[in-house]
Computed example of a mutant assay.
Amino acid sequence: MVAIRTYHPRRGRLSGRHRDALDRLLPVYGVSETSPVRVDGATLFGRDVPLVLEIGSGMGEATVEMAAADPDRGYLAAEIHTPGVANLLAVAEERGVTNLRVAPLDALELLRERIPPDSLAAVHIFFPDPWPKARHHKRRLIQPAHVSLVASRLAPGGVLHCATDWPEYASWMLETLSASALVNCFDGYAPRPEHRPWTKFELRGIEAARPVFDLVFRKVAGNNESR
């Protein structure tokens, strides 16, 4: 059975700066298809730090900003768009951020095959593709099976934080997450957390009068979903 992709494979030109970042930095700060086999804070950073997984980091500026403001935790950005991976690496180097790694891999495969159960401090899913057409809803990242997988990889007390500027997808997210084993930290949607940086994409949406919805759900102790 062929897995249904939750993302558009995209191509983009690489600048000289981005090619240099990939050549020099990806071998040092990247997670390849085979190495390391086990992905956790200790293997990525050489010390047992809480690990935050961001699924779909885009061009990476917001991810670098969050990692820089949170040096006691390690960040792993899963992003399949090569220019985004390159830009994240370049910006992280420019800012001197060392608690950040990048995985140019399918995030769901990474979760299934490489990340141990009960090991993640948080998972961030900010502005995933809404796949607005009804026939494409099966491609949405927020699906019961995917949420169950994420929940199984969160440590007790770990948080799943999602954000979208697509109202219909926000309702879908709220319904799907509320039906999962995770617990809503708020009554419905969450207020916008100060620690989530503004992105260019988000600001463009606000200029176009699109509302932004945050959802924050937590895993409670003793709650283990599919492994």
Results as ranks from 00 to 15, higher is better:
residue 116 P to S: 09
residue 113 E to R: 14
residue 111 L to Q: 08
residue 130 P to L: 02
residue 81 H to K: 04
residue 127 F to V: 03
residue 110 L to P: 11
residue 136 H to L: 10
residue 78 A to S: 07
residue 142 I to Y: 02
residue 76 L to Q: 10
residue 135 R to L: 10
residue 105 L to A: 08
residue 147 V to M: 13
residue 151 A to I: 02
residue 138 K to P: 11
residue 105 L to G: 13
residue 83 P to S: 05
residue 153 R to W: 03
residue 82 T to D: 03
residue 145 A to D: 15
residue 143 Q to S: 12
residue 117 P to S: 10
residue 125 I to H: 06
residue 101 R to A: 14
residue 102 V to A: 04
residue 146 H to W: 02
residue 89 L to W: 02
residue 114 R to G: 13
residue 85 V to E: 02
residue 83 P to F: 01
residue 148 S to V: 04
residue 127 F to A: 05
residue 87 N to C: 07
residue 157 G to N: 10
residue 137 H to Q: 14
residue 137 H to E: 10
residue 126 F to M: 14
residue 117 P to Y: 00
residue 149 L to E: 05
residue 122 A to H: 01
residue 84 G to Y: 03
residue 82 T to Y: 00
residue 115 I to N: 05
residue 121 A to P: 09
residue 94 E to K: 13
residue 83 P to G: 04
residue 145 A to P: 05
residue 79 E to C: 08
residue 74 G to T: 07
residue 90 A to T: 05
residue 93 E to V: 01
residue 149 L to Q: 07
residue 88 L to T: 01
residue 136 H to Q: 12
residue 127 F to H: 09
residue 109 E to N: 10
residue 105 L to I: 06
residue 94 E to L: 07
residue 103 A to K: 06
residue 74 G to I: 01
residue 79 E to F: 03
residue 76 L to S: 14
residue 78 A to V: 02
residue 130 P to I: 03
residue 125 I to G: 10
residue 144 P to I: 10
residue 150 V to W: 03
residue 81 H to N: 06
residue 126 F to G: 11
residue 118 D to A: 15
residue 111 L to V: 07
residue 149 L to D: 08
residue 121 A to H: 10
